[in-house]
Computed example of a mutant assay.
Amino acid sequence: MAVKIRMARHGAKKRPYYRVVVADGRMPRDGRYIEQVGRYNPLTNPKTIELDLEKIDEWISKGAQPSNTVAHLIDIVRTGATAPEKKQKVSKKQAAKAASSEE
C-alpha cells in the first residue's frame, strides 16, 4: 500500500481551503483518508499553515511519501519563514486606468 501525505481540497468554488491528510495513494483526492495532520488556508493574509510535525515525521518514518506541495509547506513551517506571496497580475484595463490617473 502506497501511503501519501497530500492535500485534500475543501471550501466553496474559488474559495479553497485545504486539509493535509495521510491517505492511500489509490484513494481520490478528496476521498477517504487515514489521518488529518494539518490545515492550509491560502486566502488569509498571511497564509495560514498549521501542521502537526510530530505526526508527519512519524508517518514519514513509516514510509509515507509527502507530495511536492506538502514537502514545500513542511519546509516553510520548519524554517519559520512566511509563505511566499504571488505577484498580483494587473489587467491591461487596470494598468491603463492607473497610468491615466498618474498623469
Rank of each mutant, 00 (worst) to 15 (best):
A2D: 05
I5L: 02
M7R: 09
R9S: 01
G11N: 01
K13N: 04
K14I: 00
P16M: 01
Y17I: 01
Y18K: 02
Y18W: 04
Y18A: 01
V20K: 10
V21R: 09
A23I: 06
A23K: 04
D24N: 15
R26E: 07
M27T: 14
R29T: 02
D30L: 03
G31I: 05
G31R: 08
G31M: 06
Y33A: 03
Y33S: 03
I34P: 13
E35L: 05
V37F: 07
R39G: 13
P42Y: 05
L43P: 05
L43A: 09
T44E: 12
N45K: 15
P46G: 08
P46F: 05
K47I: 03
T48V: 15
E50C: 08
E50S: 12
L51H: 10
D52S: 13
D52A: 15
D52M: 07
E54Y: 13
K55E: 11
E58S: 15
I60E: 15
I60D: 08
I60N: 09
S61E: 11
K62Q: 04
Q65F: 00
S67I: 00
S67M: 04
S67K: 03
T69W: 05
T69Q: 13
D75L: 07
I76H: 09
I76M: 11
I76L: 06
R78H: 02
G80V: 04
A83E: 05
P84H: 03
K86T: 15
K87Y: 10
Q88G: 11
Q88E: 15
K89W: 15
V90F: 13
V90A: 12
S91D: 11
S91V: 04
Q94M: 09
A95L: 13
A95Q: 05
A95F: 11
A96W: 12
S100E: 14
S100Y: 08
S100R: 13
E102M: 15
E102R: 15
E102F: 14
